[in-house]
Design a protein around this nucleic acid. Structure first.
Lengths: 343, 343
DNA sequence: TTTCGCACCGGCAAGGTTGCCGGTAAGGTT
DNA sequence: AACCTTACCGGCAACCTTGCCGGTGCGAAA
């Protein structure tokens, strides 16, 4: 016996066919009490026969929640793809659907995205902010509506919320200390935009490694540039043109490391002998280029899972979890670009 | 003057405050006729003051459409990320929101995803099928409900629907012909799983290039393996261990090209002199490794946009557009791995 | 016999929006 | 004076589901 109508069956159809009320059918389907075993069985079997599926729209309208999470991310590069996969994984498990919006690192687009997701009545947000973002008014709207927010990866003090992030300082520290231990003396940094916490933390790690090893900080060796291969290329050319050029470069991302590598090669310098290089993120490409590039690995997939888990927790007890901050450890992957001596 | 309640304002609130009926407010907001200019202005200004935003849930329930597109893709690698960005772009413009689900190349997961998206009452689907998928029952459910479907990239005759794809045969052809013109005689292919149309088309292109240049097809030179770097690595080792080993390899994806490259290097052979190599997709990594790898470029971002546009069209006149098939041209990017003579 | 408790069930309203229809008043037409 | 048009507006139902409350009938206890 099949569905009689084109439209999906509703509770009403079942009620009519069984000559009982809507309420009873509803109760039967939800395993609520106040239904005799007999009618429950009848309802259940008929609902199967009609291939009944509850209408999520009506349910959401009634219960005022959509079981949907809005995810805003700056792009879909390697790292973020992994994170999204992690979020997806956990969300699916918990019965949530995910709406992913890319801001493309654009402030205006990010505003538009939040707008759209708010209109879609998502139950909350998981956010990694765009590098362009310096004002946070659009996110306040979210919290005004009392919706849970979890920030991850790129966090910022301007958006207080439970967060999941890498221990970026530790990452910067281990990259720098590694270079120091390999005998490099003048270590430059290609940092990101200076409003980006993620970049500044890695920079802090760099600084504290220098401090620990009693190396004087040279401000000329710190360059802020866009999170981008081309900018890094030009910035590196500048670095290499200095009178006392650096003998190692730590870049805040692998994209930038690639840019640096290209500039170094163009200049005719050899890694690791003439100059050392360490990147960040451990994208697969770092292991494939020649020389292979050392990089700080972050557990992206795990971070995504952690963010989604934290979101679900925050969802379930809104107040308590407000100051939670999950910090995951990085791991240095040493490759040819920085390995003067074997370890 | 601010919102008086915690909850977002509804049409009801406006009606009450202005002492008019819900219907009138609704009409005023939708710029429908039958509203005096005076009351319309009153409604509009009050709705701004209260920061009224229509409740999409109620709207969707009423109008039986959610303005949401379900997107199912096998993963979020470089190419698919670009495509998703293209889809996003067009969908946003057209007032649609996108729900992206990754099947992770898993058949079971793909079923689950369609299930979930159907429950979410998406207005239709944009699909690129998993490589594992050999049965298509789960997609039939979609078409049973008369929802529009557009397939892209990985299309299959088992799922008839308007489609957007690369001219894969042309891609395979130009890659192969290029190798032939460079003087390679024994050209091997690393193909994907043999149920994957995308792979078979590229293979067809390979075959017709051989035919055109009167080169006998050697079945031993065609290897099917998983779409995956490691498998390609082992497959290439096999190829290189043959008595009469191939002097060029065309791989159906860049991932596989990387695997092949590693195997070639391990064996101590030189590209392009000892052996030529051409990949597919033109992922950025192909331009960064040494030697850089020639690859067939596909306009991923444009394909995503085209898919979304086609979806919207299909949406608007359900019947007519059923047999549309948009085919985009590939472009060969020649790099060191296959360039014996300059062009 | 009355009262109570229990097991089961139905009606109504609400959630926010729109489509359809009917209604009113003012003005114009025959 | 009777009728029609026009411009505007409100009521009701529907989309689908659930929560609350108010039943009904029956057996058991007082």
């Amino acid at each position: 016996m099949v569905n009689y109508t084109d439209n999906p069956a509703t509770i009403k159809d079942i009620a009519k066919r069984l000559n009982i009320s809507l309420s009873t059918v509803s109760r039967a389907l939800r395993n609520a009490p106040d239904v005799s075993e007999e009618t429950r069985q009848a309802v259940l079997s008929l609902s199967q026969e009609l291939n009944y599926q509850p209408n999520r729209l009506a349910l959401s309208l009634r219960q005022n929640q959509t079981h949907t999470i809005g995810v805003i991310i700056p792009n879909l590069d390697y790292v973020l793809s992994q994170m999204v996969r992690g979020i997806d994984e956990v969300a699916l498990e918990a019965g949530y659907t995910v709406m992913v919006c890319q801001s493309n690192e654009s402030f205006g687009r990010e505003i538009l995205n939040t707008q759209r997701l708010l209109e879609s009545l998502v139950d909350g947000f998981i956010i990694s902010v765009s590098s362009e973002t310096k004002s946070f008014e659009h996110f306040k709207k979210i919290q005004d509506r009392n919706l849970p927010v979890v920030v991850f990866d790129r966090i910022t003090p301007h958006l207080p919320a439970p967060s999941v992030r890498l221990d970026n300082q530790a990452g910067g520290f281990m990259a720098t200390e590694h270079l120091i231990e390999q005998g490099y003396k003048r270590i430059a940094v290609l940092a990101g935009p200076d409003n980006l916490g993620i970049s500044n933390s890695r920079l802090d790690g760099y600084k504290s490694a220098l401090k620990k090893h009693k190396i004087k900080l040279d401000p000329d060796l710190i360059l802020h540039c866009d999170f981008n291969q081309d900018y890094a290329y030009y910035a590196t050319q500048e670095l290499l043109a200095m009178k006392k050029r650096p003998d190692a470069i730590f870049t805040i991302s692998d994209r930038m490391a690639i840019g640096a590598m290209l500039a170094i090669k163009k200049k005719g310098l050899q890694m690791p002998t003439d100059i050392g290089l360490v990147g960040f993120n451990n994208e697969p490409v770092t292991g494939l280029v020649t020389p292979s590039i050392s990089s700080v690995e972050m557990p992206s997939f795990e971070m995504g899972k952690a963010a989604a888990k934290l979101f679900i927790e925050t969802m379930h007890n809104k107040e308590s979890a407000n100051n939670i901050e999950k910090i995951l450890p990085p791991k240095l992957i040493i490759r040819e670009s920085s390995l003067k001596f074997s370890v």
